[in-house]
Design a protein around this nucleic acid. Sequence first.
DNA 1: GAATTTTGCTGCTGTTTTCGCAAATAATAG
DNA 2: CTATTATTTGCGAAAACAGCAGCAAAATTC
Lengths: 157, 157
Amino acid sequence: MAGTQVSDEVAIDDIDQSLINLLREDGRMAFTDMAKQLSIPESTVRYRVQRLLQADVIQIHARLNPKKFAMPHIVTMRFNVERSHIDAVAEALAQLSEVQFVAIVTGHYNIIMDACFGTHEDLLRLFETIHAIPGIIHYDSCTALKLLKSEYQYTVG
Amino acid sequence: MAGTQVSDEVAIDDIDQSLINLLREDGRMAFTDMAKQLSIPESTVRYRVQRLLQADVIQIHARLNPKKFAMPHIVTMRFNVERSHIDAVAEALAQLSEVQFVAIVTGHYNIIMDACFGTHEDLLRLFETIHAIPGIIHYDSCTALKLLKSEYQYTVG
DNA sequence: GAATTTTGCTGCTGTTTTCGCAAATAATAG
DNA sequence: CTATTATTTGCGAAAACAGCAGCAAAATTC
């Protein structure tokens, strides 16, 4: 799992970009709609979109609006890790299912992580799991009290 | 815009939950498919999904896989803000289009924020915008060197 | 540089899906 | 209990889709 960074990059041309932008607004837009808007045949749209999906350049799925729920608990943690363990720790964290975001970063802390879960028991379990990962020198965590925005929609172009 | 937290919550029953879970795996799944899987009529599925979308409980859209690109620059910032300005600053940050995530949190810092952009000029502009927001006492930022995971898929149930 | 394979694009056709409507049913309020 | 509103459901017309096949361009092989 996880690992190789900006490895398998893909060439995205203007058409792909337009398709992506349309699908970013409405993931269920009909192929024929997109075709009309871009003045290209529907079969081409279908071919391109399928290719983008297959190559895992995009995924199309429903996202829950966390504001419409008893908000799940969201926690951010920052880790200071022994240099030689950075990758291993980051990968270990990334494999935990409650973990939503992991990155290796500049600065005093080496790794940042966001996680979200339903109950405090889950959080406790998360801490226990983290304590079992070797190489972590120090970490701190803080809990979200109010979520203002949570999009995580990377743009292209 | 923004603001009222866990305000307008919505009641989600088992059917909604099943539909959401199906759409989380494949946002383009046909209504008839879901109907078959749940053994309910297609028109009901359609009614429910439309309602979920309209009530903004879910959104369906394409997400770019950042690993397949020249990764956009990702920056995390933490802000220490005058108590009376916390909400205002958070809302101001949330309105910036490059900003992906904003939350008010426990701990020494009051607000955390993630943003992502294509070029360093964009980052510079972001900093200028931030400097113009009143109430910020102190902040620090760090840049992602390697992105391990970025899901932000909140689960239900 | 010719032949062959791969890759990408497009039109076509039968099949499936969606859509729009309206009746039936259930839930809620007065 | 009745009026009102919300939800479910079936049905037929219209639209969208899947799959294939044909073609052209690009890449690869010989």
